[in-house]
Amino acid sequence: MNIFRLAGDMTHLLSIIVLLLKIQATKSCAGVSLKTQELYAVVFVTRYLDLFYSFISLYNTVMKIIFLLTAFTIIWYMRKHKVVCQTYDKEQDTFRVLFLIVPCFVLALLVNHEMSVTEVLWTFSIYLEAVAILPQLVLLQRTKNVDNLTGNYIFMLGSYRALYLVNWVYRYFTELGYRQWIVWVSGTVQTCVYLDFFYYYVQAWRNNERMKLPG
C-alpha cells in the first residue's frame, strides 16, 4: 500500500468521524442528507460482501467493518435518535435515489469483469459510490448556507477521492500490468462531481468567510 492510498483511506475515515462528531456534539443533523448516507450504506454492503469469503489483510477487514458500522450508526442517529431525528431536513432532502440506483445496477449488469452475483454487486457499488454524494450536494444547494462541519465533511470526502486518483497513477507506474478501467473511470467521474463544491469551499476559505452556494 502506498502513501496516497493510506492518506486517502485516512481522509475517508476522518470525514466520517467529523460527521459523527457533528451529529453527536450538536445533536443535530441539519444539512445532512439521509439519502446520501443510505446510499453509502448500500455501497458498503454490496462491496464488502467479500468479507465472508476472502481475507486480504487485517487493515482491510477492520476498515471495511468500521465503514459498515459507522454508516449504519449515522443512519440510526438520523432516523431513530429522538433529538437528532427532529433536525433532519426531510422536506428538502427529496432526491429520487432510484434514478441513481437503477441506472447503476443496469450498468453493472452490462459492464463488469464477470457475470456473478458478487462481482455484479461489487461493480454496482463502484458505480453507485461515484454518484452517492449527489443528494447531499442538492440538499446543500437548497439550504444555501453550509455549516462548517458539513462543509468540511464533504471537502474531506472529495479529498479522499482525489487521493485515490493519485494512488492509481502511482500504482500504474510502480506495479507491472496494473490496470482497472471500471474503477478508474468511475473514480474520475466521482472526483469531478466535487469540483464545483471545491471551488466554493476554497473561495470561502480564502476570503475567510462562511461558505455559501450560489442560487
Binding site: D9, S54, I56, S57, N60, M63, F67, Q180, I182, V183
Partner: peptide, 10 residues
C-alpha cells in the same frame, strides 16, 4: 481463486 488487484482497495 485470485482476487483482482483493485479488490485490495476500499
Amino acid at each position: 481463486f485470485k482476487l483482482r488487484e483493485d479488490k485490495d482497495e476500499l
